[in-house]
Nucleic acid binder design. Structure first.
Lengths: 120, 120
DNA sequence: CTGAATCCAATAGGATACTG
DNA sequence: CAGTATCCTATTGGATTCAG
């Protein structure tokens, strides 16, 4: 991700937030976190709510969120085994911190196609 | 936010915020917007403040932000010509909305390497 | 100074098939 | 149900060079 090292954007917070942004800015990731905060728990629930995300990517995203302790994965020994993905307290905090941004997003719709990406 | 249950995430405000997240989650983009709100104006100022960003990418990012009207580009006829990139009111609003997220980022440091990306 | 053009390597991500 | 394996294409982003 961002190899922010010695001195970049003026000290402190910017590199931290860029890391967070680059994490949840990955496709579906923010959405996954939000549905987690809304109560999604099982793999299939996430798959249903975040429509169009494929299994592979959903698994990758959940693992990424687990790796940074925003989501906790729990195996429930039943038949068949259930897996539960619940947001950690940090995960809930993050979604809460996202609220002003959600309000902004509703006031100013950003069309995906309007933003040119890298090459082209 | 609407209680979980009835709708897919795509139908709600979540798709909107995901668009915003995917935009500013691109490398350097959030940082660029933040330094813009902090007062950066000229190309070289951005280049200096967001250290390590290359000209091409900085230009791409600025154009992307301009395309969605978060930054405004103005040509000042002088010798040599000066180009000024200033945040629009929406851009300032966005950075303001980012504040809680910045606070979060300082409380919970997300280590970049801890998050696996796509294939692996 | 302010970029645009180009080339290239790495990564992200869509889609399908398969498994315990 | 809850993933993994695999394949393949598109996108990203680093680095350099060129130009008004």
């Amino acid at each position: 991700m961002a190899p922010f090292g010695d001195r970049r954007i003026d000290d402190s917070a910017c590199q931290q937030i860029q890391c967070v942004l680059e994490l949840i800015g990955q496709r579906w990731t923010g959405a996954i976190l939000i549905v987690a905060a809304r109560g999604a728990r099982r793999f299939s629930e996430y798959r249903t709510m975040v429509d169009r995300v494929f299994d592979r990517l959903l698994a990758v995203r959940l693992r990424a969120l687990e790796a940074v302790h925003l989501i906790e994965r729990t195996v429930i020994p039943s038949t068949p085994v259930q897996i539960r993905y619940a947001p950690t307290s940090a995960g809930v905090e993050l979604v809460t911190a996202l609220q002003p941004l959600m309000d902004f997003a509703q006031r100013h719709v950003i069309t995906p196609t309007a933003a040119p990406r890298s090459d082209g």
